[in-house]
Design a protein around this nucleic acid. Structure first.
Lengths: 148, 148
DNA sequence: CCAATGTCAGCATAACTGACATCA
DNA sequence: CTGATGTCAGTTGTGCTGACATTG
């Protein structure tokens, strides 16, 4: 269709295709109020617990931003924050039973969406899409981010 | 790299790869303060002028959101808003001379980035990436409704 | 002392809904 | 009258920097 569109726009549209459906399914079928940013966090949770600072690095935002996102998930009873037994200054973000259910649902939705996409544009296109995205693109131009 | 990542996350990372470099180049080399959202708008401008409502539909946000984005671009002297001669209730968003320069720079940056990506992951991968994204994915909603 | 972590306050940005006057 | 458009007000979400106490 839009062959003259720039790649950035195409990539964003692709992301939205997944994101909108995921949030709709999650919030309708599991009666939550997860936002787009929270769902990003969600994908990196583990039943063993993850530190907020690690989550921040993993999704590429500040510790302070993660703090807010976690707070929102906690208020919905999807995660709980517990002290890290191995380090007094850290805390672990652990999904609750309800949180694990949401994570499971999210996984199912992703599988379903990818299957739907395969039926639309073909197995080969999806495989190639994933392959290209999974490669190492390197840094796009940045002068080594001064983050952290 | 992350082959077990879900497609949504991969697509988002790909978008960010382009977006961060574009904004950096634009704002450093043309001394502007364009934000990520504004740059999206930017891609759909035309020297002939475009209605705000059309821009809203084209980038997928509300008219009110576009109104704010345009306002920001106007304050930077990158666009001007003029009455639509063919319709009294509409206005046209037209890039200024300086705006056209930015648009040109943005285009060059995109070309450069895509070329850089080609040198990293190969021509074939980029072609396939673009091909898969340019296809018609259809609507993502309605993933096997659970009865309801 | 130094570095990492979580927390809080303040600020900027983005996008939404609702409402409304104007005009085709 | 109906519907599209731009505008304004209010609200929510997101993420940033700066600052700070706690802890390793």
């Amino acid at each position: 269709m839009d062959e003259d569109q720039n790649l950035a726009r195409l990539l964003l549209d692709g992301f939205r295709w997944f994101d909108e459906a995921l949030l709709a399914a999650l919030n309708e079928r599991h009666d939550t109020r997860i936002t787009s940013s929270q769902s990003l966090l969600f994908a990196d949770l583990s039943q063993h617990g993850v530190r907020q600072a690690d989550l921040a690095r993993s999704i590429g935002v500040s510790r302070q931003a993660v703090y807010e996102l976690v707070r929102g998930l906690e208020q919905q009873g999807l995660v709980k924050v517990t002290p890290d037994p191995t380090s007094g200054r850290s805390k672990l973000v652990v999904p609750t039973k309800r949180g694990v259910e949401s994570m499971q649902l999210a996984k199912e939705v992703f599988v379903g969406l990818e299957a739907e996409l395969r039926s639309r544009i073909g197995d080969m296109s999806v495989d190639r899409l994933r392959a290209a995205l999974a490669e190492d693109w390197g840094e796009s131009r940045r002068s080594s981010d001064p983050a952290s």
